[in-house]
Design a protein around this nucleic acid. Structure first.
Lengths: 238, 238
DNA sequence: CGGCAGTTTGATGTTACTCAATTTAAGTGG
DNA sequence: CCACTTAAATTGAGTAACATCAAACTGCCG
C-alpha cells in the first residue's frame, strides 16, 4: 500500500542539509536520480499519508514541508506524537516493522521519499553511514519522547505551549536561517492543542496571554518571538 | 563511572526467558560464566543506579527485580519514564550514546548486567542476533512511548491508572505465570503518581474507588484484579 | 511504647474543560 | 470589487477534575 499521494519522479527540493539523515547517506540517496529502491511522493495539506495498522514495504522520510504523526483515540480526540520537518524519518521503528503503529497527515504541501525497507535493512549491517543515521534517529526520538512525557505529565498549559514553541524553534533553526526571531509555523491552534493535550479554546487563551505579555505572537503561519528569554523561562525543561 | 552498587561475579537468577533480549543472545551472554565484556551488579531498594548526564562505557540490562527510569524536574517533582522488569535494556539509546539522558532507581533488590558498549556496537554489524535484539528493543520502546504520550495527553486519572495496571500486567504475564489474577506489584502510590502524572493523594482516591467498585485492590505488593474486563474497559487504549 | 513511612480522608482552591455566542479571517463566485 | 460562505479564533459563563493543605489513621520496627 502506498500513500494516496501522487508519485513524482524526483524530489527537487531538499530543505535539509543534515548529516545523520537517511536522505544524506551518499550511497543511498545522492542527487536527484531515481533509484529502484527510492521513490518519491507528494501530498496536499490535510491529506493523510499513513494510517495505523497499514502494512507497507517502504520507509518514509519527509523531504519538504510539514507533517505530523498522530494517534486517533476512540473518544474522537487525537494525540499528535510529533511534527515532522524536512529530513525526518517518520519513525525509527518503521525500519524494523511491517506495520505502521501511527497515522500521519500533511500540514503543508509536502514531498516524501520512500525507501524500500528490505534495501535499508540489508545495507544496515554493511553500511556504516546507514547504521549511524538510524542510531542518530533512535537517540533523537528517545530524547523527544522523554521530554514530551515530562511535559504532558508534569507541566501546566502555559509551560506546555512554551515548550512546544521552543522545541520547534530549535528544530527550525537547525534547518534554515531565522531572521528577526520570526519562525515559519504553519500550525492551527487545533494542532497545538492536539500536540500538548489541551483544548483549542484553552490554547487560544494562553496564546492571548503570551500576546498580551509581549512574549510571542502566532499569526499568519509565523511565530514572532518578542521576548525569547521569558519564553524559555516558562517552557525550558532544565 | 559505575553504579554505586556492589559488583558480583555472576547473576544467578534470570527471571526472563525472552528471545529478542540482549541477555539471551547466546554469543553475548550465555550461562553464568563471567566474560570480559559483561559484569554484574546488585543494588538495594531505593538505591540510585544511574544518573542523568553520567558518562558510562556500559550498557545496562536488568536481570532480576524491579527498577524505574525517571527524570528529575527543577520544581522538585519527578516523572517516571518507565518501569524496568527483568530482561529490560535500560534504554536502546544507551547503545549509541556515552551519556545517560535519564536517572534510574531500584524499587526492589535488583541485579544488573553491564555490557561494554564498544563490544555491543562492534558486534552489532556482524551479529544478526544482537541487531535483532536491539531492533526489538527499539520497537518496543517506541510503542510504549506512543502509548504513554496518549495516556498523559488525553486521559483521565482513572484511565491513566487503569492503563498503567494493564500495561504492567501484560509485561508481568510475559515473564511468569500469574495465578488467580494476583500480580506482584512492588510499587508505592508515589511511584504510580510519578508515572502517570498525578498526586499521590489523588492516586489514593482513585485506588479507593477501584476497591469500592470491586475492580482491583493493591496491597502488600500485590495487585489483585477482581474485575478484569471492567479494568480494561476503563484503561484499554483501543 | 514511640517513631516513621505510607495511606486515607476532608475541606478548599485552581486549572483547564465544556458549552455557546461572537468576531475575525479567508476564500469563492457573481 | 463586493456579497456570501466557511473555517478559525476569541470571549464569556458555568462546571468538573485534579491539586493543595492539613489532619488523622494504619502497620511496622526498634
Amino acid at each position: 500500500m502506498k500513500p494516496t499521494a501522487s508519485p513524482c519522479v524526483t524530489c527537487p527540493h531538499r530543505e535539509t542539509g543534515f548529516c545523520g539523515t537517511l536522505l544524506n547517506v551518499p550511497s543511498l540517496s545522492s542527487g536527484p536520480h531515481q533509484r529502484s529502491w527510492q521513490r518519491f511522493f507528494a501530498a496536499k495539506p490535510g491529506e493523510q499519508i499513513a494510517t495505523r495498522n497499514q502494512v507497507s514495504g517502504d520507509v518514509f522520510v519527509l523531504c519538504t514541508g510539514w507533517a505530523f504523526r498522530f494517534q486517533q483515540l476512540p473518544n474522537g480526540r487525537r494525540q499528535i506524537l510529533n511534527f515532522l520537518l524536512p529530513g525526518d524519518l517518520f519513525s525509527t521503528a518503521t525500519i524494523f516493522e511491517e506495520k505502521f503503529h501511527f497515522s500521519a497527515k500533511a500540514v503543508t504541501p509536502i514531498q516524501i521519499s520512500a525507501f524500500e525497507r528490505s534495501e535499508i535493512r540489508t545495507r544496515l549491517a554493511e553500511n556504516h553511514d546507514i547504521l549511524a543515521a538510524v542510531a542518530h534517529s533512535c537517540v533523537e526520538e528517545s530524547h523527544a519522547a522523554t521530554e514530551l512525557t515530562c511535559v504532558l505529565g508534569q507541566r501546566s498549559a502555559e509551560e506546555r505551549i512554551a515548550y512546544l514553541f521552543l522545541h520547534l524553534m530549535r528544530r527550525i533553526e537547525a534547518r534554515s536561517v531565522v531572521r528577526d526571531h520570526r519562525y515559519p509555523l504553519p500550525l492551527r491552534q487545533q494542532h497545538i492543542a492536539d500536540a500538548v493535550g489541551l483544548t483549542p479554546v484553552h490554547v487560544s487563551r494562553v496564546l492571548g496571554l503570551f500576546r498580551d505579555r509581549g512574549i510571542c505572537v502566532l499569526s499568519e503561519n509565523v511565530l514572532d518571538v518578542l521576548n525569547s528569554s521569558e519564553l524559555s523561562r516558562i517552557g525550558a525543561l532544565d
